[in-house]
Design a protein around this nucleic acid. Structure first.
Lengths: 353, 353
DNA sequence: CACAATCATGTAAACGCTTACATTAGCATG
DNA sequence: CATGCTAATGTAAGCGTTTACATGATTGTG
């Protein structure tokens, strides 16, 4: 394979000049540039990135570490990251890990010299700690952590405001007794959504009996919750399930018992999984833009690394209510409404080359 | 950041010895190894991969280039690739491209010195050509190309045999007049599926009127095809849609017209998208194991690179018929049956290192 | 026209590893 | 005890770039 020296010889210039051509230095004459490029083409030369990285200490590669649970949400995140990175002429190294903090840290370490930074999703506190360790070496951005981690920027979604918008929506149809089907205890998304629900309910002051059911984000827990729901007396007007899977389980169970949705009881979910549009009735839910989550993480990474890598700024991405028919909306209404959650610390993106 | 020299000094040995420790040379004493590792730990040393790659000319990284259409299928492919690569202590650089051969080639070129090989999906002949060019530099494996490409290994799925198994399944319910809803002209998957269908039909010799409809893989083309389908006289017993989206469109349209599935007409699809299990009735279809497709590509890459990178072996992965209710199967039957397509050239995986 | 300033290019020393080859020490052998 | 062999370690030359600094050519200025 041709090296920069071969090109230099072929073009009759020094390696420095060739290098300058490839790095866009303005110090090289137009004619020299042409000569060099032609020589390079003749030899099929392409710069060796390993050598470049060694010399410059920059790789133009971003590490991405995600849990092993692949689904539409994750692939959208990756797509967002890839596009944003590509727009800034960076590439990404992807690694999944298997809910094991040690493996995570080993992965991240083994990337030393291969990446300029890291975007990671830490499932638990221990992994987050491990990541904080890593952030001494290069900027790290956490995706949707529930907690603040020292020295790491982070990007999350507006769970609370999303939950509030669901309750507001249900209210707008006159529903007053609104139940919630909670997600797993300890899960940050679940707890933020619960908080949003409580705030919205509290604000309305129409509810005297707590209408909270425990679920675990699985479809079957939605099915199970149906019985408990029916034991409330009088029957609630509506249920907000903290994610779509539970909402779908609930829908199935209700359908089976002959209870009509939304006539007898309204149901809403959270996440807007692909399936939500095909349930019977189509599920009103909240969408979080996974693509944007990924893209924002990249943007945040670039600004962090321009700042020298420190700081722990946080972005919260807005969610959007997706109105379908499970809460009583007819086909005539607007299809979606924006919850207008404000971005925090949103900064513009111009990173370094 | 600590370098190998710092560690050598700290441990009181030469850099060569430190290097040997990290590369598992058996030439180092147990005690020396301990001393070195402790020194390294004290300094928080981790080898710099850029320097390593420059020196050894190997990166332990695989490039992965996929089209920009992310969905479950692609994310499963990536998952398969990641797992298989990780099992061999390799990492992956992921890049999407936007159906543009130039961009593809630029991407691949820009990876020079960053990767040891490439796994790519080429959407058209031009991209495939571009990739063949690249394969002069390192081993390349193509994912599911319709055509053979010089010097590239490839891994595909058994479209033809899958289609045949659908027809066989339909036959087993006594269906004789079996129509097909074709995919887009020029698309390799579509054409292979059509071929499989024709072979199976021809083998049965019961059909005198060609029952072929044109679609384009979209749901709406399935909806449109409904009218054309009903114009056949007498009505076919069954329709094989060349992918699930079209099958789903067709199901919707039939339902709307009051035509019962599978009582009046049976419907089958291909791909087993997540949705297929939730349609009404649940859709009988064919599944291709995307995870395995990715994993096999990695395996193939390792054996190719052990061979010195040449050769154009091809794997064809078996498909599996997923029997649900849209063709007449009751709940009592077996859930799935294997079409038992044989692997071709399947070799075992022990890669180097 | 002498001088300085600017521009285009060259020279060569890093960057942090690996590894061929050299060296040394220890040990068995005749 | 000289010799040869092996095992453990050291020395130093790359690997292919970038870039600070040096150099020579060109231009502008008083």
């Amino acid at each position: 394979m041709a090296t920069i020296r071969d090109v230099a010889r072929e073009a009759g210039v020094s390696t420095a000049t060739v290098s300058r051509v490839y790095n866009g230095s303005r110090l090289v004459t137009e004619t020299t540039t042409q000569i060099v490029l032609e020589a390079a083409a003749r030899l099929d030369y392409w710069p060796n990135n390993a050598a470049r990285s060694l010399s410059t200490n920059r790789t133009h590669v971003l590490g991405v570490v995600l849990p092993d649970l692949f689904d539409e949400f994750f692939s959208e995140i990756i797509r967002g990251i890839d596009h944003a990175a590509r727009a800034r002429r960076h590439q990404i190294i992807l690694s999944c890990f298997h809910d094991n903090a040690d493996e995570l840290i080993a992965t991240a370490r083994s990337m030393r010299g291969r990446i300029d930074g890291l975007i990671a999703m830490a499932p638990d506190a221990r992994s987050a700690q491990a990541i904080a360790e890593i952030s001494r070496h290069f900027p790290v951005i956490l995706l949707n952590p529930g907690f603040a981690v020292e020295n790491c920027g982070s990007v999350g979604i507006a769970n609370r405001e999303g939950a509030r918008s669901v309750v507001r929506h249900l209210r707008s149809f006159g529903h007053r007794r609104i139940a919630i089907l909670r997600g797993p205890v300890g899960n940050t998304d679940a707890e933020e959504r619960l908080r949003g629900y409580r705030e919205a309910i509290g604000a309305g002051e129409t509810q005297h009996q707590p209408l909270e059911l425990q679920g675990d984000f699985s479809k079957s827990s939605g099915v199970l919750a149906c019985d408990a729901l029916l034991r409330f007396d009088p029957l609630p007007d509506a249920v907000f399930a903290a994610n779509d899977y539970m909402a779908i389980g609930l829908l199935t169970a209700l359908l089976e018992k002959g209870i009509r949705v939304p006539e007898d009881i309204a149901v809403a979910g959270f996440d807007d999984i692909a399936l939500a549009r095909y349930t019977n009735p189509p599920l009103t839910t909240v969408t979080a833009d996974a693509y944007r989550l990924g893209a924002t993480a990249v943007r945040r990474w670039f600004s962090a690394s321009a700042d020298g890598g420190s700081g722990h700024q946080r972005d919260i991405l807005p969610t959007r209510l997706v109105v379908r028919e499970s809460c009583g909306a007819g086909r005539s209404g607007p299809d979606t409404t924006d919850t207008e959650t404000r971005h925090q610390h949103e900064s513009n993106a111009g990173g370094p080359s």
